[in-house]
Amino acid sequence: MLEQQLINALSLGSVYALFALGFTLVFGVLGVINLSHGAIFMLGSYAALLLVEHLALPLWLAMLAAMLVSGLIGLAVDYLVLKPLRARNAPHLAPMIATIGVATILTSLAQGLFGAENKRFPVGTIPEESYNWGNLHVTAVQIGIVVISFVLMLVLLAVMRRTQLGRALRAIAESPKAAYLLGINVEGLFYLTSFAAAALGGAAGVLVGLSFNAITPFMGQPMLHKGIAVIILGGMGDIRGAMIAGLFLGFAEVLTVAYISSDFRDAVGFGLLFLILLVKPSGMFGKVLERKA
């Protein structure tokens, strides 16, 4: 039934959008494509799982704690990896290569600590309630995923558009040197951006873990590919674009599985991405952001 597939697509697409928001935030402010974002997403899932299993935290509190853990990991990556490269005026390719190395290290550590097999949340952790309207079936988890994703996305959009912090971040995105001359703490906001982006990635990781009830050390890599596709489709550095493109990719995948075949899920999704970029190479929203100084 089409209505049921649209509900499933909304749930999946909102997670893609949330993951891509952190990705595009780092690119928009720091001018860096952080390829360790998928590994941080994965660690967010494990953090929530461990807190639920060993400390018996309620799910909502474990998710907040997982966002904090993910944010701190993102902050550490910025301080230990990206900051030295910024100080040396490294070419744009250097952070990408460095964060690939970080992602490999984090994935290997997770595999060594937790094993390669799927992990699941303990029985009773995930709400089992569901709601039926005719033939339409919606679970409490799906409702929670959509609500949490949209709340986080709208909060970020409001901060960027309506606060002094958001204006400062937009100024840095335009020109870090000019922002520094205006008295903005550029380095401090770089750290804050890395923390916030990683926290959003961690939240997406927890939501994916809840949605599929399966957590593995390798779950970050496929999501990283989707995130790259989303930020390119939406327009590099554009928050609105990331939200809409994430939903678009989710709908494309779910409808392909439902009405064509699961074998063509990625082919159709990325094929549509290719066609859209042929028409509008800069993505759905505006031009690719460039640094002016």
Score class of each variant (00 low, 15 high):
M42Q: 00
A62F: 07
M284C: 14
L165I: 15
K226A: 05
A198N: 10
G283D: 03
A17D: 05
G188V: 09
Q221Y: 06
A203V: 13
G188E: 05
E117C: 02
I143V: 14
S14D: 01
E129I: 08
M223E: 02
A56M: 13
I100K: 14
T99P: 03
V254Q: 05
S194N: 09
M284P: 07
F248C: 06
N132K: 14
L233N: 09
I126G: 02
I215C: 02
R240L: 14
S282K: 15
P95F: 13
V32H: 04
V279P: 07
A199S: 14
I260F: 14
L49F: 08
F212W: 08
G13F: 04
R167L: 15
A76P: 07
A98M: 13
H37R: 04
S130E: 01
P122S: 08
R240K: 15
F264L: 15
K226Q: 05
G209V: 05
G237H: 01
I105M: 14
L106N: 01
V77L: 01
G269M: 08
L21Y: 03
G202I: 12
H225N: 01
G237A: 03
P95R: 12
Y191D: 11
M42D: 05
L275V: 13
T125E: 00
V29L: 03
S262Q: 15
Q221D: 04
G271C: 11
Y191N: 14
L25N: 03
T104E: 12
T193A: 03
A199M: 15
F121Q: 06
H37K: 05
L85G: 10
A76H: 02
V268K: 00
I148D: 05
G74L: 10
F19L: 10
I148N: 00
D238F: 09
G13P: 07
A9V: 08
A110S: 12
L207D: 07
M284K: 11
E3W: 15
S36G: 02
L189T: 06
L207S: 09
F190L: 09
G13T: 00
A98V: 15
V52K: 04
S108K: 14
I239G: 03
A245R: 04
I244H: 06
L68K: 09
S70I: 00
T99M: 12
F150D: 08
T139I: 13
M42W: 02
G271W: 10
R86S: 04
L61D: 00
S11Q: 03
G237T: 01
Q4S: 11
E129P: 04
V141S: 01
A258R: 11
L275H: 12
L85Q: 04
E290A: 12
I148Q: 02
A94G: 12
F270I: 07
V102D: 09
T107Q: 15
Q221N: 07
A47S: 14
A204G: 14
A204T: 07
T193D: 02
M219I: 06
F195N: 06
V155A: 10
L93M: 13
L75T: 00
L21Q: 04
R162Q: 07
V206P: 09
